[in-house]
């Protein structure tokens, strides 16, 4: 290499070095809170801890075991079903609420907005306990309902109903949150669009279909991704209800509950880490597909 070429190389190196300083606060935090735990989980997942014999390297055995584990598939199937049914219902309700508030035809819309949002402010544990009491078929609201109609029809805490019961709690908790996302997106629509629509003689439904919904597309994609992540991480609601009905909700009701019980009841930290990594990958892939699809369709318009 010629000596003449050296100075620019040096300068280039120097420039990138300075840039690093600017991003270093972020990188340090990023490395500490994201990279390290993930790397450690991956490290854990290739070992196996035993009460007899201690820790040993097992390569990908944990992964092979997981993919052949009916309990894992049982939990994953359950959250997938939950995702397919509960998320559309919740987002549709949130959308309707946001459009209603935004329409300006609602009396006391600010009260309505706060009322719908309020459940989100209730701590999850409290919310589940509250619903747990209502669901009780001996002392709860469900018992009163059954008395009223004179049958035993309403039994939310039985194996047939439990997923719906959990879905109801989650919907109650998060409709307001999603409504707020939609509502703020609606507020960002320029007023001249509405004026133009009015001049063209568009009615309310035409405005909703041609202006509001297209403008909401990105917000809907984001809310969907949050909800997908939330569904795959389903834990609090079933785990707290489990104290009331330990035989109805199994220790592997959702993948997160399974991971929790594997590590804290069974001391199978490595296997739990394996499960966590697989679930992380599954969630990321599905969320990414949704995002890709959502933004591509937006581009096509």
């Amino acid at each position: 290499m010629s000596t003449a070429a050296a100075p620019p190389t040096l300068r280039r190196q120097r420039r990138s070095f300075v840039g690093l300083w600017f991003v270093s606060p972020f990188l340090v935090v990023f490395a500490f809170v994201l990279i390290t735990p993930v790397a450690y989980s991956i490290y854990l997942s290739v070992f196996r801890d035993r009460l007899v014999g201690g820790r040993s390297f097992v390569g990908l055995d944990n992964y092979a075991q997981l993919f052949a584990d009916p309990k894992f598939w049982d939990g994953l199937g359950r959250v997938a079903l939950f995702l397919a049914v509960q998320v559309p219902i919740m987002l549709a309700l949130a959308l309707v609420a946001a459009l209603a508030i935004d329409s300006g035809r609602l009396r006391g819309s600010s009260f309505f907005r706060i009322a719908v949002f309020l459940p989100y402010a209730v701590p999850g544990v409290v919310a589940v306990l509250m619903w747990g009491f209502m669901y009780g078929d001996q002392f709860g609201l469900a018992a009163n309902l059954n008395d009223l109609i004179g049958s035993e029809v309403v039994q939310p805490l039985t194996p047939q109903w439990i997923l719906i019961a959990v879905g109801n709690i989650v919907t109650w908790e998060f409709v307001g949150y999603n409504m707020l996302i939609f509502y703020s997106a609606l507020r960002a629509i320029p007023v001249d669009l509405y004026e133009a629509a009015a001049i063209d003689g568009a009615g309310s439904w035409r405005v909703v279909l041609s202006i509001k919904l297209p403008a909401l597309r990105q917000a809907i994609v984001i809310a969907t991704i949050f909800s997908i992540i939330g569904s795959f991480q389903l834990f609090n609601e079933p785990n707290i209800l489990r104290t009331l009905i330990p035989s109805v909700i199994s220790t592997y009701f959702t993948p997160n509950m399974y991971a929790y019980n594997l590590s804290f009841a069974g001391q199978q930290y490595a296997y739990a880490a394996t499960l966590a990594i697989v679930m992380g990958v599954v969630t990321a892939v599905i969320a990414y597909v949704v995002q890709l699809r959502g933004s591509r369709e937006a581009d096509l318009r």
């Binding site: 009460l51 194996p159 330990p246 035989s247 109805v248 199994s250 220790t251 592997y252 009841a265 069974g266």
Partner: peptide
């Protein structure tokens, strides 16, 4: 059992079904 607390934690997954 040497792992009784784990065994108890899965009791309702198994024997619990017979109760249910």
């Amino acid at each position: 059992l040497p792992w009784q607390s784990y065994a108890n934690s899965i009791f309702n997954d198994t024997v619990g079904k017979s109760y249910l």
